[in-house]
């Protein structure tokens, strides 16, 4: 496969296999619903009924199963998912921080609330070459804006932070949302 894959607004790249999703939480009907909806819901007055016709269930059953998957946390939300790049958020910076272990939990929560932060995770260090234990993904309309956001994070972290880096994505080489194994339904 070519590595110079352009990302279209719909991810057309082949789906990776994630059998764990099936084994851990989904029965065959749930799986069919996920396969039928993962690229997007049918935009019709009764989307659940339309999905149901595709998978051989009635609309009420589809709705009940989606709600149950949401309650179990398998589905985080059903939403109108914006493409931030298309709205002008063309710069994304993965910032990595070396933060005092005694304070990282408290500071991680504070940093996660700063504007522009979409994800914030604690991850292990790999000393000596990788000292960073806190990751925050920043989104801005330019690298300058991402740098201002990073500066706000640095101020919040204060003396507990020894070092940090900003890693900018220069190219998307592969991007697929979590997909069950099967050909992606035609978009």
């Amino acid at each position: 496969m070519s590595v110079s894959t352009c990302r279209s607004s719909r991810d057309a790249v082949r789906a990776p296999e994630v059998p764990g999703l099936e084994e851990r939480a989904l029965d065959a009907h749930d799986r069919a619903i996920v396969l039928a909806t993962q690229a997007g819901l049918p935009l019709v007055p009764d989307p659940w009924g339309a999905v149901g016709r595709e998978v051989g269930l009635d609309g009420e059953e589809v709705l009940a199963r989606l709600r149950a998957m949401q309650a179990r946390g398998v589905i985080r939300r059903v939403a109108a998912v914006p493409n931030h790049y298309r709205l002008g958020y063309v710069a994304n910076g993965m910032t990595v921080w070396d933060v005092d272990d005694a304070e990282v939990e408290r500071l991680g929560r504070e940093v996660a609330a700063i504007a522009g932060v979409s994800h914030c995770y604690r991850r292990p260090r790999h000393l000596p070459h990788w000292p960073y234990n806190l990751f925050a993904m920043l989104h801005g309309r330019s690298r300058e804006e991402v740098e201002r956001q990073a500066e706000a994070l640095r101020e919040r972290l204060g003396a507990a932070c020894r070092d940090h880096r900003i890693l900018y994505s220069s190219r998307i080489l592969k991007k697929t949302g979590l997909r069950l194994s099967r050909r992606t339904p035609s978009a």
Binding site: V18, L21, A25, L43, G73, V81, L178
Partner: peptide, 15 residues
């Protein structure tokens, strides 16, 4: 402008 109207899955619960 919208990448989709649909479900957002939780990777951590999927293996």
């Amino acid at each position: 402008v919208l990448s989709r109207v649909g479900a957002v899955f939780d990777h951590a619960r999927a293996g």
